[in-house]
Computed example of a mutant assay.
Amino acid sequence: MLVVNQNEVAELLAMESCITVMESVLKDLSAGQAVQSLRQVLPLHQGNLIGLMPGFLKGEEVAGAKIISVFPSNHGSGLPSHQGLVTLFDSSTGVLKAVVDGQKITAIRTAAVSAVATRYLARKDAEVLAILGTGEQAKSHLEAMLLVRSIREVIVWSRTLAKAKDFQAEMSRKYGVDIIVAESVQEAVRPADIICTVTASTEPVLKGEWLKSGVHINAVGACRPADRELDSETVRLAKLYVDRLESAHNESGDYLIPLKEGVITSGQIIGEMGELISGSIEGRTTADEITLFKGLGLAIEDLAAANFIYNEAIRLQKGIEIAF
């Protein structure tokens, strides 16, 4: 069994490679070549939880699961909100091949999936990016968006102004891009061509009345039925795409709450990203359409990332081999 730690995951899973891997596995999922069970969630105290996410990649002959803790209460403590691991089994023999750090996989693959959605749904001339939130996902989403669109300006918002300024200083140095700190969400999103919501909020931070025509939104912060980052008007205005229909119908407050309110119908969801990639459903058809990708995070994304990391680790002789 190979053990791959967090530093090695960051070394072996480049964002550009991960975008390619995510595009492929999302297509496989919608085509039935990748299989997963709905995330099992064990609630803990103070809104924290443990999640179990099993899946099977038929073409790669690997199966496994991610076990992840989601602790929103860690924000401000210096500890990450998402911690865990991904197990990788040979599906033909049942042999445990690897255990891979799950925190860094989550950070990279979540942004990579948003990049896939942006590549297919955002306007080709999109150049102003708004990021709501300043945590690990904000950083990885900035990296990912820069790879799929020619971004000339980034606007960042945080509930804590000091965190937004720290993000501005660190990321502008790292990527050489112009970053502006906004004092309100409205100020951040008004000029935006692409919006990434990566907050820990359980109540809407983004309102539909603030959106300009033609914007594309990646909403990935909320992953429980009672939680949302978007108000109902935002969802009503948008062509909605999801990573997995089953997950959206069971886990996405951003979709379920406006559905319950009667603001939208089940027909609001155009389909899955895998269907869009394969060309079986349509994407953006006009420059003025508002498009929305709601990402919840999928087991097959973690497995595909872990399998890529495992193969790279074998090739480059990374990781620690442990008799098990």
Rank of each mutant, 00 (worst) to 15 (best):
M1V: 11
V3S: 14
V4K: 04
N5C: 11
Q6I: 13
L12Y: 00
L12T: 04
A14S: 14
I19G: 05
I19M: 01
T20R: 15
V21P: 03
V21A: 02
E23M: 07
L26R: 01
K27M: 12
L29Q: 11
Q36G: 04
Q36P: 03
S37K: 12
S37M: 15
V41E: 13
V41S: 12
L42S: 11
Q46T: 15
N48E: 15
G51I: 08
F56H: 09
G59K: 05
V62F: 09
A65S: 11
A65R: 06
A65H: 13
I67E: 06
F71G: 09
G78E: 08
P80Q: 05
H82Q: 01
Q83S: 15
L85S: 15
L85R: 10
D90A: 02
S92E: 13
G94T: 08
L96T: 07
G102Q: 07
G102S: 07
T106F: 11
R109V: 04
T110S: 06
A117I: 10
A122I: 09
R123G: 13
D125F: 02
V128Y: 01
G135I: 09
E136T: 15
Q137I: 11
L142E: 04
I151E: 09
E153H: 08
E153M: 01
I155Q: 01
I155G: 00
V156M: 10
T160D: 02
L161E: 15
A162D: 14
A162P: 08
K163R: 14
D166F: 09
Q168Y: 03
M171H: 03
M171E: 11
R173G: 15
K174H: 10
V177N: 08
D178A: 12
D178E: 12
V181M: 00
A182L: 04
A182S: 11
S184G: 10
V185I: 10
A188E: 07
R190P: 08
R190Y: 07
A192G: 08
I194P: 05
I195R: 01
S201T: 10
S201R: 05
V205I: 14
K207S: 13
G208D: 03
W210S: 04
A219E: 03
V220F: 03
G221Q: 00
A226L: 12
S232Q: 05
S232F: 00
T234H: 01
R236H: 12
L237F: 02
Y241S: 05
V242P: 05
D243G: 09
S247M: 01
H249T: 14
H249E: 15
G253R: 05
L256F: 00
L256T: 05
I257M: 07
L259M: 09
L259F: 02
K260M: 15
V263R: 01
T265I: 07
Q268W: 10
G274M: 06
S280A: 06
G283A: 06
T285Q: 13
L296A: 05
I300C: 07
I300P: 05
E301Y: 02
D302A: 05
D302E: 10
L303R: 10
A304M: 01
A304K: 00
A304H: 02
F308D: 09
L316V: 09
I322A: 01
